[in-house]
């Protein structure tokens, strides 16, 4: 059983979580369609550490995990607010 640590619920079986994709900066409203397409479809997808959205399904709690895509090691998980605050900064 692989364990993931949810910032809200603590360590849980990874089968309780749902993967939500790479964390990417969202295009601004009115952005060029090509920019939106890039955001939607193109992935970084490298065998390296990535930031990802995850959801603890039983509690519908979304958060961010830093995970190594080649080793599956989960380096850090933290509340989404930490990232969203950064993104909101000019």
């Amino acid at each position: 059983m692989k364990i993931m640590t949810c910032p809200l619920n603590g360590p849980r079986n990874i089968s309780e979580f749902s993967y939500g994709g790479e964390v990417r900066a969202r295009p601004r409203p009115g952005a060029d369609p090509a920019v939106v397409a890039d955001y939607l479809f193109h992935k970084t997808n490298q065998p390296d550490v990535v930031r990802e959205w995850w959801c603890h399904v039983p509690t519908s709690y979304w958060f961010i995990a830093e995970r190594h895509l080649a080793t599956d090691q989960i380096l850090r998980t933290y509340p989404a607010a930490e990232y969203l605050d950064q993104e909101a900064q000019p």
């Binding site: 890039d38 479809f41 193109h42 992935k43 970084t44 997808n45 490298q46 065998p47 895509l69």
Partner: peptide
């Protein structure tokens, strides 16, 4: 694919 494509400066709509 994404790893080798990156060497050519290409981003792909692919997840491994």
């Amino acid at each position: 694919s994404s790893h080798v494509a990156k060497m050519a400066g290409l981003r792909l709509a692919i997840r491994t």
